[in-house]
């Protein structure tokens, strides 16, 4: 197997403050990988570095191509969809306009309509609300919209920053089920950042644990889930 995403010696900075200290990890083609860590560990920073939204050094390769020095929008156009922390919803626009924006960089304009219908099949509630202003959706609905918007890119890789944040447990389960389905059926590789370690580990095949800007542990999701330290610090039993 070849790595779809290959991150080496990644260091990221907020002004003078260094947030990542030589991070290294791989994401295999077709994998659903999770990055676990406590508040402030550097999860969001990692995702932001991949999309060049923050100053960083080191090397990030996607499909063998270096991403350094590429602008955020051109990285996205390579097929990396990023659902940011806070969801990034265009709240003043309608649900459908949000979906169209997800596909705004695509050239195959004729196929976009069909894809919107596919999103409505994944998330029926979005269809009911397609003319509604996105800001009026509930938190869970907005998260579904954010995932659907990202999928409208027809990405090769999807980066998700704490999709469970602020959602009721039942809704999180639903959402994660859909993510698993998208990963298997639509062949979208997924990197999901989570504080909700238990659910993330059930869903993922591979896991990394990040602490103060460094990877401190890696393995299959099962290995990590059964690790003594992880159980104590992240799973709470």
């Amino acid at each position: 197997m070849t790595a779809l995403l290959h991150v080496k010696d990644l260091r990221a900075y907020y002004g003078q403050v260094q947030a990542l200290h030589g991070l290294e990890f791989d994401l295999q083609e077709g994998s659903l990988t999770t990055l676990l860590g406590a508040n402030g560990a550097g999860k969001t920073t990692t995702l932001r570095s991949i999309c060049n939204m923050i100053r960083s050094t080191g090397s990030i390769e996607f499909e063998g191509k270096k991403l350094d020095n590429k602008s955020t929008e051109s990285i996205v156009r390579l097929g990396i969809a990023h659902v940011p922390q806070g969801r990034g919803t265009f709240t003043t626009m309608t649900v459908e306009e949000n979906l169209q924006l997800g596909a705004i960089s695509r050239k195959d304009i004729k196929a976009i309509g069909d894809d919107i219908e596919r999103m409505y099949a994944h998330f029926p509630v979005l269809k009911q609300r397609h003319t509604q202003q996105a800001g009026t959706l509930s938190g869970g609905e907005q998260q579904m919209l954010a995932v659907a918007r990202a999928l409208m890119l027809r990405p090769r890789l999807m980066l998700l920053d704490e999709p469970s944040f602020g959602l009721a447990p039942l809704i999180v389960r639903d959402l994660f089920k859909i993510l698993g389905k998208i990963n298997r059926e639509d062949k979208v590789s997924i990197l999901v950042v989570e504080q909700n370690a238990q659910l993330a580990l059930e869903l993922a095949d591979k896991a990394y644990v990040i602490e103060t800007g460094r990877i401190v542990m890696s393995g299959t999701a099962d290995e990590i889930a059964n690790n003594e330290d992880v159980r104590k610090s992240y799973l709470g039993y």
């Binding site: 996205v76 990023h82 940011p84 990034g88 626009m93 924006l101 997800g102």
Partner: peptide, 13 residues
Amino acid sequence: TLPESARLVGINT
């Protein structure tokens, strides 16, 4: 309205 989100859907803001 939201330049950062716009870049994340591939718009050259």
